[in-house]
Design a protein around this nucleic acid. Structure first.
Length: 426
RNA sequence: GGAGGAAUACCCAAGUGGUGAAGGGGCUCCCCUGCUAAGGGAGUAGGCCGGGAAACCGACGCGAGAGUUCAAAUCUCUCUUCCUCCGCCA
């Protein structure tokens, strides 16, 4: 949610910023409603103030035996006036709300305009594995032959877009989750296990609703809906919804493990099978609440953490700064970590680290009281995958595969997996 | 799923239609005392919205929303959350 005061003050600047992400917005109807709204409030409140004054007098007059019937008549009339003004006000409010809720976040100043084509590779780590001596297999073949993932039986149980980790595959997946959890705890982050089913308002605060309701699995219930979270971010952003934190409480550094459930309507490309567009995948999510002046530093911190985790696994990756149009609607800045996928000859996103500034905080009314002057202001919120293990497992088997079809287990996972190398026989 | 009960400030809590939502604890400040104590006094109802450069003024505000009324913490309805009991529990 954008600040109406800022739009009122500098509509052209906001308009130009939104244009960076390809959003063409005309603020004229909004600003007209804004003026109308304030007029309605002024008129309604003037009548209410008068009514309050008279109401204070009535009991006194009655006690003194005066005649109040004329006053009562007048009060009844002004009551009706107030009611009609307030009805109009509600309609204007709803119209403005609808307009504002549909607007995406303002991209940060240093974010490039344009779409995907303007994404910039910031850095890269490691190098592409050398497969000169043999033809590397793709992760679907590897995971199948090594019996790490059972794609067919996953579909049998749950339908298209689901798979099943089996044996060493489950252990490898779980080892990664454990590894990340341990690293986050070492860094002083607080471990959270949130509910997986959330109410509508939580999706609204995250910026998911109302625009992307079709993208989640929904359960219709009497008296409302619940949905399966598409990422732990959707839960964690709501931790302090409608709360006022003390400045001393900030920054908050959290992480959570949840599966992520997404509809991902439409078919995936064959090469993406088993990695992208699954309806359910595992992810550790990092999350931060900060003072506005600290969010840039925390963004750097989160990028650093995500990078170190991929490096710990020894995977070749690049860090990309997204152009405005490629950032999701709620985010002002996003950096992606993209891991090398030999079979696809592409770098694929495995972590996305973003700063939402006050966009989500405004939607969810998440604020803090400054220690010095007791003023209340919106916090900044940040999130980053740290990491999506279900996308890392394919990268691991592809990058670590050997000529004989076996896969070497990354050092940091060997104890937890209980194996140094995965072979078709193991 | 059923039957009851509850929701007022940081905490406890009074308040069954009428001008400023009692009181206590805690907290902040001051006085007295003089050193891990005790006493006295003052302050302490949030947040949003509108106006204003500000001081401030106004509107709203007793879980949320609607209604009755000239007037609602108080009466009515709907909902939410919590508590007690019963049932269910792969």
């Amino acid at each position: 949610m954008l600040d109406i005061a800022r739009i009122r003050k500098e509509p052209e600047t906001v308009c130009a910023a939104l244009a960076k992400r390809g959003a063409q917005v005309d603020f004229a109807p909004l600003l007209k409603d804004d003026q109308l709204r304030r007029d309605l409030i002024a008129r309604s409140e003037a009548i209410k103030a008068e009514r309050n004054r008279i109401n204070k007098d009535i009991p006194r007059l009655k006690k003194e035996g005066g005649d109040v019937s004329g006053l009562l008549e007048q009060m009844k009339k002004s009551g009706e006036e107030v009611k009609s003004l307030d009805d109009e006000l509600r309609a204007v409010d709803a119209r403005m709300q609808e307009f504002l809720v549909g607007l995406p976040n303002i991209p940060a100043d240093d974010v490039q305009p344009g779409g995907k084509e303007n994404n910039q590779v910031v850095s890269s780590w490691g190098s592409k594995p050398d497969f000169a001596d043999f033809t590397p297999k793709n992760h679907v073949d590897l995971c199948t032959s090594l019996k790490l993932i059972d794609y067919e039986r996953g579909v049998k149980m749950a339908g298209s877009g689901f798979w099943l980790y089996t044996g060493l595959g489950a252990r490898l997946e779980w080892a990664m989750l454990n590894y990340f959890i341990q690293e986050h705890i070492k860094d002083g982050y607080t471990f959270m296990l949130p509910p997986h089913l959330l109410i509508y308002e939580s999706g609204y605060t995250a910026g998911q609703f109302p625009k992307f309701e079709e993208d989640v699995f929904r359960l219709q219930e009497e008296g409302g809906m619940r949905f399966l979270l598409p990422t732990a971010e959707t839960a964690l952003i709501n931790l302090y919804r409608d709360e006022i934190l003390e400045e001393a409480d900030l920054p908050r550094r959290l992480f959570a493990y949840t599966p992520c459930y997404r509809r991902e309507a439409g078919a995936y490309r064959a090469s993406e099978r088993g990695m992208i567009r699954g309806h359910q995948f595992n992810k550790i999510e990092m999350f931060g609440f900060t003072r506005p002046e600290d969010s840039a530093a925390m963004l750097g911190e989160l990028i650093g953490k995500a990078s170190r985790l991929v490096e710990g696994l020894g995977l070749h990756y690049q860090l990309t700064k997204l152009a405005a149009g490629d950032c999701s609607a709620s985010m002002a800045t996003t950096y992606d970590i993209e891991v090398w996928m030999p079979s696809m000859n592409e770098y694929k996103e495995i972590s996305s680290v973003s700063n939402a500034h006050d966009y989500q905080a405004r939607r969810g009314s998440i604020r803090y009281r400054r220690a010095e002057d007791k003023k209340i202001d919106f916090v900044h919120t940040l999130n980053g995958s740290g990491m999506a293990t279900s996308r890392l497992l394919p990268a691991i088997v592809e990058q670590y595969q050997q000529a004989d079809g076996s896969v070497i287990v990354p050092k940091v996972l060997r104890d937890m997996v209980g194996a140094d190398i995965l072979t078709p026989e193991s």
